[in-house]
Amino acid sequence: MSYLELQNLTKHFTKREGWIGSGTTTVKAVDDVSLRIEKGEILGLVGESGCGKSTLSRLVMQLLTPTSGSVVLEGERLADLPPNEIRKRRRDFQMIFQDPYASLNPRMTVFSTLSEAILTRKTELKSDRKGLEAAVSGLMERVGLDSRYIRKYPHEFSGGQRQRIAIARALGPEPKLILADEPVSALDVSIQSQILNLLRELRDELELTMIFISHDLSVVRYIADRIAVMDEGKIVEIGESDAVFDSPQSETTKLLLSAIPQIR
């Protein structure tokens, strides 16, 4: 049994057009996508903007309801679960966003951001201030942040450090699946490598399953075990990272590869 399985997942958006919305057009943002992800695997999801990769990630995260098809997590169809069960399951799948400037609350210290995340799982720490503080410090150190900065606000950190806070927050509820949506594209090239190394280490240490979304094939190649290439809502190619990189089959993959700036 695969850890996560998408079965014929489809999401259509309908847009009203014309005089008082008499006409409609349908956008097939995600169109009949099926794939499996094994436990501990990193799947890279690549494509140009507008290809549907963000919609797909929102479907996996249960932030959107699919038009048809289903998301199966550890053998359970998430759509069959009652809402309060899904809320409980939510701890198991967490997201890391592209822009650490926008995804962290500027009015919350690192401590409050991370303790909130930790308390979703470890409710017993609610009345144990010391234990909670230790858990937050531990989390900060795990992602390579100095725990002396526990009372600082996001604006006091650099871009790379902020992304580390965002990663720590995602790890707080001890998830099994992490969905990282362009986690390094807002960062300097020199910082990108640090964050990619960190994500890989965490995967190895915590046996995380990860979906890594990016438009940059060169980044995905490094981190992902397998790569799925999306275009117009469909998966046009999927395979081992090196295979996709070295002998691309689809036109979309070839286009993405040719767009990577080359050192000459």
């Binding site: 650099s158 020199s190 990619l196 050192i263």
Partner: peptide
């Protein structure tokens, strides 16, 4: 060091080279 830290130029699997410190 900057040149070495470009992910595109590094091979898969190994640790990516990063410039230590800030």
């Amino acid at each position: 060091a900057l040149q070495r830290s470009i992910p595109a130029l590094q091979s898969r699997g190994g640790k990516l080279y990063t410039i230590p410190g800030l």
